[in-house]
Amino acid sequence: MAHSTPAANKAAALELVSDYSLEMTGKDVPGLIEAKDSIPAGTRINVTFLGNEDLEMRVAAAKAVRELGFVPVPHISARRLASQEQLEEFLAALQAVGATENVFVVGGDPSTPEGPYEDSYDVIRTGLLPKYGVKHVSIAGYPEGHPDITDDQLWSALVNKSASLKEQGLDATILTQFAFDTDPVMNWIDQVRAKGIDTQIRIGTPGPAGIKRLLGFARRFGVGANAMIVKKYGFSLTNLLGTAGPDTFVTDLSALLAADPKTGSVKLHFYTFGGLKATADWADKYAAAQS
């Protein structure tokens, strides 16, 4: 269902872009240090769990996030874990540097699990997370679906994970894949709320980045980026030079959210594609324009 976009609402735009979260990899610590003065203190910063990084690198990045005055949200990639022992080793190492209160549990990329965990629900229902000091768990949401998982499976997983976290007394956030188009995002939020899930949602949004790179990531993750959408958001499929920021998407999404109070608590999560300072500077400039 298409949502007609109301007029821009500066107060709503300012509210949406406040208290954003960011994403970095284990290799981005130098970029984080460069960006630290541009990022508001206490910002939630997710630390990815990539196949080409090791435990030490992930833990060091989470520690750096905390020491610089931000909130580390390390990723736990279920399908990359070879054993329960490896999961506990990672949690213990994070706990030792004060970085387990907030985690993001995700299925992960490998088509075949490397150990006993088929998906993020398998990790959550072990009951091990609270044992290592976890208090808040982020889980994944897919407004435009997933290339390898059916919609029915995605909804079932979201409902089951939400219920399990509630049973364990853990706070939760739903963090989505990035999007360019407000229609599938708003429709998906409506469906989440219709299922009785009132968890805060963080909508994944690409920070300012090279157009060619953005479209490459969109294709990889099955995100819609057709000619109409990319034209709407200010860049062209025929001219892949230059950069694009999420100004139009954020402005339109904030107006739609403000017009529909049933959407509940919705914030932004920026996929920075390595550009932490560029993203934080963009958010600062965008917020200033709304004030």
Results as ranks from 00 to 15, higher is better:
Glu167Ser: 11
Thr176His: 04
Ser18Thr: 14
Leu253His: 09
Arg79Glu: 08
Val105Asp: 14
Asp252Trp: 03
Asn160Gly: 00
Ala218Pro: 15
Leu241Val: 09
Thr173Phe: 07
Glu23Thr: 10
Ala179Leu: 06
Gly207Phe: 02
Thr150Leu: 09
Arg219Phe: 06
Ala140His: 04
Leu16Thr: 06
Gly133Asp: 02
Ala225Ile: 01
Ala209Trp: 04
Leu32Gln: 07
Pro206Ala: 08
Pro206His: 03
Tyr142Met: 08
Ala258Gln: 05
Gly26Trp: 07
Thr25His: 00
Phe104Thr: 02
Lys27Thr: 11
Ile124Gln: 10
Val97Phe: 01
Gln86Trp: 12
Ala278Pro: 14
Ala99Lys: 09
Val134Thr: 15
Asp247Lys: 11
Val137Ile: 07
Ser18Tyr: 08
Arg219Trp: 01
Asp148Val: 08
Thr100Ala: 02
Pro184Ala: 03
Ser120Arg: 04
Ala60Glu: 12
Leu16Glu: 02
Lys63Gln: 13
Phe235Val: 07
Ala225Cys: 06
Asp247Gln: 13
His136Arg: 08
Gly275Pro: 05
Val65Ala: 03
Ser236Cys: 05
Pro74Asn: 04
Asp252Thr: 00
Ser111Asn: 12
Pro261Arg: 14
Leu257Cys: 03
Ala288Cys: 01
Phe90Asn: 07
Ile197Ala: 01
Ala12Lys: 06
Val106Leu: 13
Arg44Gly: 12
Thr100Tyr: 10
Tyr117Val: 07
Ala244Asn: 13
Gly204Asn: 01
Pro208Cys: 02
Val47Asn: 06
Arg125Glu: 15
Leu268Val: 13
Thr243Asn: 13
Leu32Ser: 06
Leu214Met: 15
Lys135Met: 09
Met24Lys: 09
Lys166His: 00
Ala244Phe: 02
Ala289Gly: 03
Phe217Glu: 06
Ala244Pro: 14
Leu165Met: 14
Gln153Tyr: 09
Val17Cys: 14
Val185Ala: 11
Asp181Gln: 12
Gly245Asp: 15
Gln168Asn: 08
Glu15Ser: 15
Phe221His: 11
His3Trp: 13
Leu129Lys: 11
Gly108Asp: 10
Ala7Cys: 04
Phe249His: 04
Ser21Cys: 07
Gly264Gln: 02
Tyr20Asp: 04
Thr248Gly: 10
Met24Tyr: 06
Phe235Asp: 11
